[in-house]
Structures are given as structure tokens and as C-alpha cells.
Design a protein around this nucleic acid. Structure first.
Length: 220
DNA sequence: CACTAGATAATCT
DNA sequence: GATTATCTAGTGC
């Protein structure tokens, strides 16, 4: 027999690429309900598929930690649109992160996809992150985007349409008894809201890091 | 393992 | 000019 296969096995991996996307109504709910429900579902981009293990909820204009808190700007325009679309942003001069827009049209809430495990297209993912172990391929929001090849071109993409390269497909939902929540990572405002959700014990969940204000460049 | 600093650019003030 | 929903490489234990 072949040695160890990834969880789910190769047949499940192939299914992940062809399965129907989640219905748009899935996203047309309060963001703190959608976020934990996404755990275990599968994000597909091209021939790579990823089972979500960690996400964070951001409640739009009501949430000091959200990019949408200060209102509509060119960058945040996608979040103010209809649910079921991808909001991709560029940060720290080198990284992309991807969110899925939630709630009613105009609420500007979204779920940040923070980590997951690759269930199809392992070869492609490894090429994109050649120095990474399998466990670390998508362990963190910027690593996730690199492993799946997500960038500016995917901003605004409809993830509920079966014919687009980037889509969110139905997987095996996480066992509710294994879902944990806690404060969001790397965020300054809104610390009291425990809106980071993850699958307890899953090795692909990223380590928690509290927000640290960056030091300024030393003046020589 | 814990901790630090540096990379690098869009966005906002 | 300051800040940032990050990651990696480096040091030291």
C-alpha cells in the first residue's frame, strides 16, 4: 500500500476541486455566526484546495479593528458590496491576505482566512513555498495566500460561483465540540471580542501572537 | 523553545 | 510621516 495519505485521502481531494460552492445565503448572516461555520470547509483556487482550520471575524463599520471602520475607501470597497466575494489586501509591503465578505449588502463585515491544511494540489503549493514544511504551507494568512496563489487579481472575485477559479466549496464541517475561540491575532483595537475561531488540536492552526507596536527605525 | 529586528509598500493622517 | 489583520532569519537558552 501507499504510505501515509493526507486526511480524507486522494478521492476526497479530487472531490474538493469539483464540488459545488457554498450557497450565497451561507454568507448572508452575522459575521460571528459565519466564521465558525466556515471551519472544515474547503477553499479552492485553480488546482489547489485548502481545508480551513482558523478564521477571524471583522464586523465592518462597527468594529475598530476592521479596515472598514473608517468608512468606504478604494481599498475597502469590496467589503461594502454583496456577501460571498473575496476581499484581498496587501500589507507589510510584501504580503496578501484574503477575507470573505459576510452579512447584508453594505454592512462591510468579513471573515479573514488565517490558516488551513492543503487537501489537493500539494505539488503546486510546495513549489510556491519551497522552504516550508507541509504543516506550515498555509499556517498563517499570508502563507495561505502564497500557497494558493491568491493576489490582487482575486480581489472582488465571487467565491459562490462554480465557474470561477477561486471558490469556497462544501467540506466536512468541523466537529462543534472541537471549535475554540479567543482574541484576534495582531490586532490593536477591539481586543475584548473573542472572534478568532479555530479547530482545537489541529497542527495547521497558527501560533497566537499578541499585537506589538513596531519600533521606529533607529536614528543613527 | 523565546525573543528580536528587519524587510518593504499601500493607505491614511 | 506613521501605521500596519505578517513572515523570516537570526541570536541565545
Amino acid at each position: 500500500m501507499a504510505p501515509t495519505q493526507p486526511p480524507g485521502g486522494p478521492e476526497v481531494s479530487a472531490q474538493a476541486l469539483t464540488r459545488e460552492p457554498l450557497p450565497r445565503e451561507f454568507f448572508d448572516r452575522p459575521v460571528e455566526e459565519v466564521a465558525p461555520d466556515l471551519l472544515g470547509h474547503v477553499l479552492v483556487h485553480g488546482d489547489v484546495a485548502l481545508r480551513l482550520t482558523e478564521v477571524e471575524a471583522y464586523a465592518g463599520m462597527l468594529d475598530p479593528a476592521s479596515h472598514a471602520y473608517r468608512g468606504l475607501t478604494p481599498r475597502t470597497a469590496v467589503m461594502f458590496g454583496p456577501p460571498g466575494h473575496a476581499y484581498v489586501y496587501f500589507t507589510y509591503g510584501m504580503h496578501f491576505c484574503v477575507n470573505l465578505v459576510c452579512g447584508e449588502d453594505g454592512t462591510a463585515s468579513a471573515v479573514l482566512l488565517r490558516a488551513g491544511g492543503i487537501v489537493a494540489g500539494m505539488g503546486t503549493a510546495r513549489e510556491r513555498r519551497p522552504n516550508s514544511t507541509e504543516r506550515d504551507l498555509a499556517r498563517g494568512p499570508a502563507r495561505l495566500c502564497t500557497a494558493l496563489g491568491i493576489g490582487r487579481d482575486q480581489n472582488g472575485s465571487d467565491v459562490c460561483s462554480p465557474d470561477r477559479p477561486l471558490k469556497i466549496t462544501a467540506g466536512e464541517p468541523a466537529d462543534p465540540s472541537r471549535i475554540r475561540s479567543g482574541p484576534r491575532t495582531g490586532v490593536n483595537g477591539g481586543k475584548e471580542t473573542p472572534w478568532r475561531f479555530w479547530i482545537d488540536g489541529d497542527p495547521t492552526v497558527s501560533p497566537y501572537r499578541a499585537h506589538v507596536p513596531r519600533k521606529r527605525k533607529p536614528t543613527a
